[in-house]
Nucleic acid binder design. Structure first.
Lengths: 340, 340
DNA sequence: CTGTTAGCGCATTCAG
DNA sequence: CTGAATGCGCTAACAG
């Protein structure tokens, strides 16, 4: 049984004033005599008065709430994004309404609808991998609700974005591999539908180009290939592979397994770099070098942009590309190990 | 610029009926002529009418929203709890309002206040480690807002709980170690303030007792001891240790390091069991046996209990203790390896 | 400075 | 079956 909360009229009656006066006193509306104001404040405190944000939302047409849609909670990446978001929204006095798409377009659409219905003041989202429909995104824009998209891009939607610079992240990783002596570098690709996959692949190619290493199609594999292990294994035999750059840490671990099976030592014979810098990277043997995408920062920055948009709708759209950090561990050689 | 949404009165005017009629038609209020109803429904659809839950909340005094407070997002455990919760609340048509305490009592108190202010229909929470104040929890109860606490217990608060059976989880792990030949088993304890630490420790002791193995104080260590590694190292030399049961996977990894340094083989010389079954467990070498607490189920069940409480406040309180699952991997022996 | 009036969008009496 | 009236709790415009 929910207990009734004390309302602004309750304290108005008790003090023989009108609700408006109380409202003004409570909100520093200025035009209230100091004496009455003190009286009201005192009683409000005594009665444990707490304003009802629902009622306030109704009249002010804003909810102090921002909606978040992410594909899932379980990956460390999204946990960190979420933490980053929460850190800034909570400070700014905004509530977080959270939805999941489970990487399903249908659920994503439903989630956007839910958030729009809830009259959130703005929406943060990372859209699904499958990205062929975007009417629902356009609908958000049409509704006038600020929207900031994170990590993944939807070309057709003109809004603010915060992404990780996958191209440079990949470039730096492969560049490092080459600088530490690798020349025959395998790349294990990510899901075809993601822009991140494409960009990391491009970064890989660009690094090869910089060092005048010919791109070799035979060294590139699809991460979701069920025969990935076999193919890599075969590749190791027919090519003088000395480096591997994987789309993700998990794909890097797949490569780990193959190398171990083949009795190939890491990093002496083959260096490996993963992507995402999952906490696991520090616990495998040898510890995996990886590209950190700064997910916490991504969330925090995206939330900041959104808050700006909310507070001033005239704020120009932004496209932020976050610098990654190549975290070096034991799966790659260090410069000094390079034979001169 | 937020676009104005079409309201119930908009469509009422357009059809020359009153808002009440429209409301009734939309909510299957029954007493509306089929013809008008169809007309209203048609126009509502055409205009893209969506009910305003804020307004509805105000009159119905419920928000279809449930609040969640967790210490943090980053641990896999909480991610899974969150996923479990979301899976049931979204199906039931409830929104999720999320707050973090960062393991800080002050933030926790503030979060509860925020959720109460937001008039959530119920609250799910895992309270902070430090648990000396609980006025704010009592306040939730007093307000009549259903509350389900997860994972950690607050003795003073009489409400529904969903926890993991730490005692049995630990017992089974240690029992297994003993059954596979271990007798000198180290236990690395968790944070003193947590009931989970105590219960796992008790489970450890009980398993020893079952097998008539004397409890040896020298084999027990505090996980947060900065000299943990050194102490374990020393212990390995002065005792014929053949098993380790750690409060968490991360503490188990600490033990891993020590064993590797000492050149002790796992599990041939020493078996290890961790706790929480973090995904990392499958990636370390050797793969770590661990106790899975079923966090997804914990979240789902807690959400279910809360929903019941919300729908029928007379629902009796429940105290659910979830069975854990001992996940066996390569860091422990199998039965058949035991010398007969 | 303060009271009056009005309305945010909706559900729910109570009359007809 | 339907309309008119009322109120959820609060803010804001307008008088006084």
């Amino acid at each position: 049984m929910k207990k009734k909360r004390v309302s602004i009229t309750d304290i108005a009656k008790a003090l023989n004033v009108t609700p408006s006066t109380v409202s003004r006193a409570l909100n520093n509306g200025g035009k209230v005599s100091e004496k009455k104001k003190q009286q009201i404040l005192a009683l409000a405190k005594e009665l444990g008065y707490r304003p009802n944000p629902i009622a306030r939302s109704l009249v002010e047409n804003k909810t102090q709430t921002i909606g978040l849609i992410i594909p899932e909670f379980t990956h460390h990446f999204y946990s960190r994004v979420l933490a980053g978001i929460e850190s800034v929204t909570s400070k700014a006095g905004y509530q977080l309404l959270i939805c999941t798409s489970n990487e399903k377009k249908k659920q994503e659409i439903k989630s956007f609808q839910t958030l729009l219905d809830a009259r959130v003041d703005g929406i943060l989202a990372t859209i699904c991998k499958k990205n062929d429909e975007f009417d629902h995104l356009q609908e958000v824009l049409d509704s006038g609700t600020p929207l900031v998209l994170m990590d993944r891009i939807c070309e057709e939607i003109e809004t603010s974005y915060v992404i990780s610079d996958d191209f440079v992240g990949a470039f730096q990783a492969v560049d490092f591999l080459i600088q530490t002596g690798c020349t025959q570098i395998i790349h294990i690709k990510g899901p075809k539908v993601l822009s991140t996959s494409f960009n990391r692949f491009m970064g890989y190619k660009e690094a090869l180009k910089k060092h005048l290493i010919a791109f070799n199609e035979d060294l590139v594999f699809e991460g979701n290939d069920p025969e990935l292990a076999e193919k890599i294994s075969a590749c190791l035999k027919s090519n003088a592979v000395d480096g591997i750059f994987a789309y993700s840490d998990y794909l890097a671990f797949e490569a780990f397994k193959v190398l171990k099976n083949e009795g190939i030592s890491i990093p002496d014979q083959v260096s490996i770099v993963g992507y995402a810098d999952e906490p696991i990277s520090s616990y495998v043997t040898p510890q995996l070098s990886s590209v950190n995408q700064k997910p916490f920062e991504m969330g925090a920055i995206a939330a900041g942009l959104l808050l700006n948009q909310i507070q001033d709708p005239e704020t120009p759209l932004e496209f932020k590309s976050l610098k990654t950090e190549l975290v070096l561990r034991a799966s790659t050689k260090t410069f000094k190990e390079i034979p001169v």
